[in-house]
Design a protein around this nucleic acid. Structure first.
Lengths: 187, 187
DNA sequence: AGGCAAGCATGATGATCATCATATAACATC
DNA sequence: GATGTTATATGATGATCATCATGCTTGCCT
């Protein structure tokens, strides 16, 4: 049957939201169309009325996850006195490590993005946008190399969360997060 | 038919080698048993004479990839005057970025490891072993915080390679590698 | 030398998956 | 208020995959 147009837009949003969540939780291959649709409260058949393919969904889901990440960084910059320190505390905290499903798409999907022709473009834009935000909104001790340091901080933070999640030993995992947080705080 | 025992051992090795390569190239889900066996010069049926499951193969393939990585670090330490710098030049070089299939398993599989119950144990051991090697064999400027700095360098290097691979823009990708290489050289 | 069993190939099995086909029923438009 | 359109559900399709079943052949051991 047919449904009101306002509902349709909400359902589209819900599919995207659940896709962004499930992709980060299980990977692009690990989350199926049917599972995503069910999480959005629909059945699999309705999917192709909203997206042309699973690849297209990947593209939009990555965009969505980056938009979320960027708005968080923006919130840190306006609500805290030291945005860089707030970023480090949040990004390298246990909560982020333990909840990849609504965390940073770089840490959750990095290597899979490199293999996904659909996701690389929005990913590249997302990384550039985040970097620009870090360069302009964080307070850097050495202004002349702010961009280099932003790339450094971002890389180290992403790598640390990936290692902390992959590792089997909780103390070691905590050590990784704490070490990188301390090391980056002085930049 | 039956085959000589020496041949069998070589085939086992070949399966492991191709698995470690294909997993890093396409991910655990992206590389199928049949494809791995074909790459090893066999058919899919022979697989279960060598491994009890694909999960078991993942476990051993991760072990193998880490052994390879460790022997490379060891070689750097014995053949160069500045092992840390040699590591940075190699790990953050274009060759490593462009050839995930025989590069570092952390950068190629990080987030997927976190979701794989089979791979987390060997991964954890591998990371610990690499870190120990870095702490003891690299020349650190500040000896008191060598371990913290080793964790920092490893995280930043892993993150940088993951981002450099995922990004669509070659100049941006090069910039990531060069920035992190420069930033880490002073530790 | 002869029998046993190991290692491999071929092919089957059942599950899972992305995508497509079709029918339905209500919305939007005139 | 009639009509065409649209979002959805159900179900089909064909591909892919891990794993299992079977049988052959030949190395290995007695």
């Amino acid at each position: 049957m047919r449904y009101p147009a306002s509902e349709t837009a909400k359902k589209h949003e819900r599919i995207l939201k659940e896709a962004a969540r499930l992709f980060r939780e299980r990977g692009f291959d690990g989350a199926g169309v049917a599972e995503i649709m069910e999480a959005a409260g629909l059945t699999h058949g309705a999917f192709y009325a909203h997206f042309t393919s699973k690849d297209a969904l990947q593209t939009e889901a990555v965009e969505r996850a980056f938009a979320q990440a960027n708005s968080r960084i923006y919130a840190l910059a306006t609500n805290t006195s030291d945005a860089k320190q707030a970023f480090l505390d949040s990004y390298l905290g246990r909560a982020h490590r333990n909840h990849a499903q609504d965390g940073c798409p770089m840490a959750a999907l990095g290597p899979e993005i490199a293999r996904s022709s659909a996701a690389r473009k929005p990913f590249t834009q997302g990384v550039k946008h985040i970097l620009d935000g870090m360069v302009s909104r964080f307070r850097w001790k050495r202004k002349g190399i702010a961009r280099r340091n932003a790339i450094h901080v971002l890389s180290a933070a992403v790598g640390a969360v990936i290692l902390a999640r992959a590792v089997d030993d909780p103390r070691f995992s905590d050590e990784i997060l704490a070490s990188v947080r301390d090391a980056l705080a002085s930049l």
